[in-house]
Design a protein around this nucleic acid. Structure first.
Lengths: 189, 189
DNA sequence: GTCTATAAGACGATAGAC
DNA sequence: GTCTATCGTCTTATAGAC
């Protein structure tokens, strides 16, 4: 297991603070204090506050893009792909709880990388929508507005970072199984 | 129809800016600029930036609390109450798209009112969970982890403010009907 | 009700010593 | 790699003229 560099430590601690207060409300002095050093010392490892946010968000967004690429290339039906998407979100979210908060809430503070991020997100949603539309055509899923279906499932998955740390007694296999049922079969008996 | 006071206008415009950039990233100069006046002039109508946020968030949180109180006092089964909760979120969210963003993303920037807000939210979730648990006991809904069911439904409803303005061609009755089906019956055919 | 001027401090970031 | 000192700018908010 590779040791964490100082730069990686800064990014990890920054993501934790960004989750608590949001990017704009976290100062370089806050971050330095949490690291046990002075604010000026941070600049020996990173270029700017903006760079930290860029790194956190873009690396996560690319991870989702790569995950979706693998799912798309697998030969499965709609329900199978949806279950894999649920798995993908649980895996990435549980591995990077703090970063997921920035991805969801602070992407608007990206500058040069903002349009790139929006392209990745938009492509991801296009793939997701395509899977649902295929499922409607093949009669695997109900013929309801695919936009509303995607919205409902995706917002649940995008909020996992809030709930996973609050329910530590709930293991990830149990969560995965419950979400598969709830999101796909519903809660009605 | 009552005319909007200057103070109400400031709060409405502030909520719009808070949705776009978050509370911390919006300056009083931004807000004044959007109003067509100077920043100092704002203080003739409001006490502080903090007060604006307090007003936006607490009034919405109390609206949800009151809505839940009415639903609880109505004699309905679990599914009936859930459908009313869906209606409640659609109604409040569509009437105050901008404010919902602050309620969801900027509540951590409350100061004196923060614990009051957290109490309202926690009570709301307790009521929601209670409805689901009753539904499990009466065999109306499936016997899955009520925490995960609540998480899934509630995060979808709490994110409505993002999606409603993006899908203006989708009217609210259609949205309501689709959400009832998706959240309760699932998407499986 | 809006303005100009300004207080008092916090902000991101840099220079240069050690 | 961290420090002290500091720059130039932006921040919320107030005082007082009109």
């Amino acid at each position: 297991m590779k040791l964490e560099t100082r730069k990686e430590e800064i990014i990890r601690v920054a993501a934790k603070l960004f989750k608590e207060k949001g990017y704009s409300a976290v100062t370089m002095r806050d971050l330095a204090g949490e690291m046990g050093i002075k604010a000026a010392s941070l600049y020996n490892h990173i270029n700017s506050k903006q760079d930290i946010l860029d790194t956190i968000i873009i690396s996560l967004a690319e991870e989702f893009t790569e995950g979706m690429r693998l799912i798309q290339s697998s030969k499965q039906n709609c329900i199978g792909k949806l279950k894999q998407i649920i798995q993908l979100h649980i895996r990435i979210s549980s591995q990077n709880i703090y970063g997921m908060a920035s991805l969801n809430n602070d992407w608007m503070h990206l500058k040069e990388k903002r349009s790139y991020y929006k392209k990745l997100r938009s492509d991801y949603e296009d793939d997701f929508r395509g899977i649902l539309k295929d499922g409607i055509v093949s009669s695997e899923i109900v013929d309801l507005n695919p936009e509303v279906m995607m919205f409902s499932i995706l917002t649940t998955l995008r909020s996992l970072y809030i709930w996973i740390p609050k329910k530590e007694d709930l293991n990830l296999e149990e969560l995965s199984s419950a979400l598969n049922q709830i999101l796909i079969e519903g809660i009605n008996k």
